[in-house]
Every structure is written in structure tokens, then in C-alpha cells.
């Protein structure tokens, strides 16, 4: 199954962000939503746009090919979330499932993207490519969680490639390959016996002068990049431990506001 979805925001004259394009194709469905849970940076910002990606079918399944394009217009603010976790399933003939995500965050714009975990079921073969282009002064929060196998299950093969460029220069380029297709993936150089792997990227132009210090948070490290950005790389035995670890790191780096829901509009 092929699916294309496109989302674009723009800064309106009143200073609020309006959703300029919201094009979905099943099963990749985009929906406008209200604030859900704590939000870093944007917790009290009624002017931000909030969109959820809803998977209206199981999968992706081997052979599926999804494309998501997100354009956060200059100065606008978008909070992007998932409705639920994604379960990667094998196709009938061992085909690869693919998800390509292409993101532009314009000058001075903000993207907070907090997807739900991706679960690699036994036998799946999946490849995810995320390319993020940040304009000057853009801010980004992007978190990823990968769970290897449902309870007690041997995972399939997953490749996650994340590329972030800032003002045309490379900022972060990491491809994680795990599962039976990747030599040495469960050795102690790559992920060992951990079955929950997560990352959090925070890009904040406020860090150009004073980047955060490196830090260790148990089996997670706060890694200042060569630029105004940080990667938190986390490994955990299970999903709950991973989420707690990433939440702690996020609160520390971006300040998680909005534990109270804003008044209903």
C-alpha cells in the first residue's frame, strides 16, 4: 500500500499558526487536535497548531510505502503527535516497509514532534528515513522510541535514519540498524541486550553561545552536538523505563510546561 500525506503551517497576521495544508491518504491520516498531555516549549501557546498522525490500519506491513511531508512555515509553531504506537509487521513475502518523512522548519519556526513508540514485530523489515531541514533560528524537538519485539519476541530488522541539517549544514546524521539483518547489532558496541532504544534531538538557537554540558542519566547520555543542539541517546530494558528516561531528559533540556491542560476553547 502506498500513502502520501502532506502538512503545512504558516504564521497568520494575528501571530497564530494556521494549518495551510492538511492532505491525508489512508492509512496515513492527519487530524487537527487539541493539546494532549505536557508539551515542552509550547504548553501554554494557544497560537500553536496541533496535528496528530492517526494510523487507520495496522502496520506498516512489509511492502507498504508511506511518505509524509511536513512544512512548518517561517515563524510558525507546530506540535506533531501520534494517536497510538506503530506496530511494524512482516509482509507476506518478506518485503520491506518504508516510511519517508521530509520536514522543513522555516526560519524562526518551531516544531515539537513527539511520536509514540514504534514496535518491531518478529519478522518485520522496515526502513524509516527522516530528513529535517532547519532554517536559521528554527527550533526542533524530535523524539523517537523503538521497541524491539512485542513481549519476549525476537524482533525483525529495522533501519532508522535521521538526518538534520541546520541552515544548509549537516548537524546530525545517524542511522541505526538493528535486528537479524545487522551484523553485531546485539553486541556490546551497538545496543547489547537492550530492547528499548530512544533518542531525543533538541535544537535551540539559544544554545549557540552556551551549549548544554554533556551528562549521563543512567543508560542515557546527553550529547551536545557540534552546533546549537543536543542528542539524548537512551537505551533501556523496556518501554516504560525508556519513556521515563526520555521524559526526564526532555524536562531538563526544554522545560516541560503545560501539565495542566489549557482551558477548553
Amino acid at each position: 500500500m502506498r500513502a502520501r500525506a502532506t502538512l503545512a503551517t504558516a504564521l497568520a497576521a494575528d501571530g497564530r499558526t494556521r494549518v495551510a495544508t492538511l492532505h491525508s491518504q489512508a492509512p496515513l491520516t492527519l487530524r487537527l487536535t487539541h493539546p494532549k498531555g505536557p508539551e515542552p516549549w509550547t504548553g501554554h501557546d494557544a497560537g500553536a497548531a496541533r496535528v496528530c498522525v492517526a494510523a487507520s490500519a495496522a502496520g506498516p506491513i512489509g511492502g507498504d510505502d508511506y511518505d509524509l511531508t511536513v512544512d512548518v512555515g517561517a515563524g510558525s509553531t507546530l506540535v506533531l503527535r501520534d494517536i497510538s504506537a506503530t506496530l511494524l509487521l512482516p509482509g507476506p513475502h518478506g518485503e520491506l516497509s518504508r516510511l519517508r518523512t521530509t520536514v522543513q522548519v522555516g526560519a524562526g519556526a518551531t516544531l515539537v514532534w513527539l511520536p509514540e513508540p514504534v514496535i518491531a514485530a518478529h519478522g518485520c523489515r522496515h526502513r524509516s528515513d527522516i530528513r529535517v531541514e532547519l532554517g536559521t533560528g528554527a527550533r526542533l524537538i524530535l523524539s523517537e522510541q523503538l521497541l524491539l519485539g512485542r513481549h519476549g519476541e525476537q524482533p525483525g530488522s529495522v533501519v532508522q535514519h535521521l538526518r538534520v541539517r541546520l541552515a544548509g549544514r549537516p548537524l546530525l546524521n545517524q542511522q541505526l540498524a538493528v535486528g537479524p539483518g545487522a551484523a553485531g547489532w546485539d553486541g556490546s558496541a551497538v545496543i547489547g541486550d537492550r530492547r528499548a532504544i530512544g533518542s531525543l534531538v533538541v535544537v535551540d538557537p539559544g544554545w549557540t553561545e552556551h551549549p548544554p554540558e554533556p551528562a549521563l542519566l543512567g543508560d542515557a547520555a546527553v550529547l551536545p552536538l557540534a552546533g546549537p543542539a543536543v542528542l539524548v541517546s537512551a537505551l533501556a530494558p523496556d518501554a516504560l523505563t525508556l519513556r521515563r528516561c526520555l521524559d526526564t531528559a526532555l524536562a531538563r533540556l526544554a522545560g516541560t510546561h503545560g501539565h495542566r491542560q489549557p482551558a477548553a476553547r
Partner: peptide
Amino acid sequence: PADLPASAAPLLDLAAERHAT
């Protein structure tokens, strides 16, 4: 150069940071 391999090793990153302390 932008398309050169970018293979990640999270435990090596973690080990290096721990070692540095």
C-alpha cells in the same frame, strides 16, 4: 559526502561519555 554511511552505535557513544568522566 552527505550520503556517506552514518551507522550509529549507541553503546559506544555511551561508553565514551562514561569513560571521559
